[in-house]
Simulated assay, not measured.
Amino acid sequence: MTMASNDGTGSTPAVRDSELGGRVRDIQLNRSTILRAALEIVDRDGVDALSMRRLGEAVHRDPTMLYRHIPNKAELLDGIAETVLERLQVDTTAKDWAAQLRVVAGDFRALALAHPNVVPLLATRPLATPLGMRPLGTLRPLESVLTLLVSAGFTDIEALHIYRAFFGFLFGHVLNELQEVVERPEETDAVLRLGLHRLPIAEFPLLRGLASALASYDGAAELDRGLDILLAGLNSVLGRPALPVAWSHEA
Rank of each mutant, 00 (worst) to 15 (best):
N6C: 15
N6A: 12
N6L: 13
N6Q: 11
N6Y: 15
D7V: 14
D7N: 13
G8M: 12
G8P: 04
G8D: 06
G8Y: 10
T9G: 05
T9K: 15
T9A: 11
G10E: 07
G10I: 11
G10L: 11
G10D: 04
G10V: 10
T12L: 05
T12E: 03
T12W: 10
T12V: 10
P13H: 13
A14L: 04
A14D: 02
A14R: 00
V15A: 02
V15M: 07
V15N: 01
V15H: 04
S18N: 08
S18V: 12
S18A: 07
E19M: 13
E19P: 05
E19I: 09
L20C: 12
G21N: 09
G21F: 14
G21Y: 14
G21L: 15
G22I: 09
R23T: 04
R23L: 08
R23P: 02
V24W: 00
V24F: 02
V24R: 00
V24G: 01
V24D: 00
R25Y: 03
R25V: 11
R25I: 10
D26C: 03
D26P: 01
D26R: 02
D26A: 04
I27L: 12
Q28K: 15
Q28I: 09
Q28N: 09
L29M: 09
L29D: 02
N30W: 13
N30I: 14
N30R: 11
R31V: 14
R31I: 15
S32R: 12
S32C: 09
S32K: 08
S32Y: 14
T33E: 03
T33L: 05
T33W: 04
I34P: 00
I34F: 04
I34N: 00
L35A: 03
L35M: 08
L35S: 00
R36D: 03
R36W: 11
A37I: 14
A37Q: 13
A38V: 00
L39S: 05
E40C: 13
E40L: 09
E40I: 13
E40V: 12
I41W: 03
I41G: 00
I41F: 03
I41E: 01
V42F: 04
V42N: 00
D43M: 02
R44V: 00
D45I: 06
D45Q: 15
D45F: 08
G46K: 00
G46V: 02
V47K: 01
V47C: 01
V47R: 00
V47Q: 00
V47A: 01
D48K: 08
A49K: 02
A49Q: 01
A49T: 04
A49G: 05
A49P: 01
L50A: 08
L50K: 05
L50T: 07
L50V: 11
S51I: 07
S51N: 06
M52H: 14
M52L: 13
R53C: 06
R53Y: 12
R53S: 14
R54G: 10
R54D: 06
L55E: 01
L55K: 06
L55Q: 06
G56D: 05
G56C: 12
G56H: 07
G56T: 03
G56R: 09
